[in-house]
């Protein structure tokens, strides 16, 4: 029993260890007090238990919407259990991801991880993040919002090539709205700059909605975001997506060519996957991971996904791990070239 509560501590988790110890101590005492506790992986999840899903974003945010959807579906898959979403916003995703790394390792707490957002936090030394990839057991990816770049419908730029050419002609004069400095959207712009040997001026906004407002008002040339940010605006004819940064076209933006097909091999997007804190019994993690796959592939939810504008892209634990490693490499390489 104590084996499970002694996590294989990931490197760089020293500060969390006091809380971890306390949690472990509490769990041990709790288990000792509560007579025989058959918390083996066979009887997992026990009926009547409550799961906690930590979300590093506030209620109503994109990550939150994904997590709540999965929580409701999981409750159906495991009758008798409940799945409680706990929002831990703060410092981008850092507070929430840290909370997940420090969470109890009893198999009843897991969380949503947004990549590559969490990776940029891990790789930024100034943020002093106390977690890394080894702090988590990824169980699978759920949804994926492909990166995209959009301009006003009346913009002279008809393709990504047009915009890049304009940037080449007048270095740093073309402005692109992005969310935060070194956030995913900003890194996409940096990837374009590095790939095409041009320079843009990024204009930072606190959220993608305000960046869109700046774009629609004609103050900036383009906004780098995700397909999901632009769908409503495209439908209303105010905005044109120049490129989708994915291997294939997006179902939500039919007819928009990929960046790759326009000669820019950039693949980027915001993924929403789930992970347990490292130290959890791998069998438990696998069990929830399987169920996640079942939900993601279930025809039952298909129309609901479309209604919510979610692009489901399930990856099992192994695929998720590969994707995660790939993103770490991609982001590290981008960051190494700007400093």
């Amino acid at each position: 029993m104590t084996k499970r509560t002694q996590p294989d501590r990931a490197p760089g988790m020293q500060i969390g260890s006091r809380r971890t110890f306390l949690a472990a101590a509490l769990t041990v005492t709790g288990l000792a007090l509560l007579a025989p506790s058959p918390a083996s992986a066979q009887a997992y999840p026990e009926p009547g238990k409550r799961f906690t899903i930590i979300v590093a974003g506030s209620a109503g945010s994109g990550t939150d919407i994904n997590a709540r959807f999965v929580a409701a579906a999981m409750e159906k898959e495991f009758p008798g259990t409940s799945f409680q979403v706990v929002n831990r916003p703060g410092a981008g995703v850092q507070v929430g991801v840290q909370a997940l790394a420090d969470a109890p390792k009893d198999g009843y707490t897991f969380g949503l991880i947004s990549l590559p957002t969490a990776i940029t936090v891990m790789l930024d030394p100034s943020r002093k993040a106390n977690f890394n990839k080894e702090s988590f057991i990824g169980i699978g990816n759920f949804s994926y919002d492909a990166g995209a770049i959009a301009v006003r419908a009346d913009s002279p730029y008809k393709s990504l090539g047009d915009l890049i050419a304009a940037a080449k002609e007048k270095p740093a004069e073309r402005t692109v709205g992005v969310v935060g400095p070194r956030g995913r959207e900003h890194l996409d712009v940096i990837a374009m700059e590095q790939g095409a040997g041009v320079s843009f001026t990024p204009v930072f906004h606190n959220d993608s909605g305000l960046a869109l407002n700046t774009l629609l008002g004609g103050n900036i040339d383009a906004v780098q975001g995700s397909v999901g940010d632009f769908v409503a605006q495209v439908k209303s004819g105010r905005v044109r997506i120049l490129a989708v940064f994915d291997k294939q076209e997006s179902a939500y933006a039919p007819g928009v060519p990929t960046a790759e097909s326009q000669g820019f091999k950039i693949y980027s997007g915001t993924s929403r996957g789930f992970a347990f804190p490292a130290g959890v019994d791998p069998k438990m993690a696998a069990r929830i991971g399987e169920t996640l796959g079942k939900i993601a592939n279930s025809p039952e939810y298909k129309s609901k996904f479309a209604e919510m504008g979610l692009e489901i892209r399930y990856m099992d634990a192994a695929q998720y791990n590969t994707y995660w490693n790939g993103e770490v490499a991609r982001i590290s390489s981008l960051l190494s070239k700007i400093n």
């Binding site: 709790g30 509560l34 906690t52």
Partner: peptide, 11 residues
Amino acid sequence: LGVFLPTTPFG
């Protein structure tokens, strides 16, 4: 209301 509040330990 289905809000999360820290639960009492030891059940």
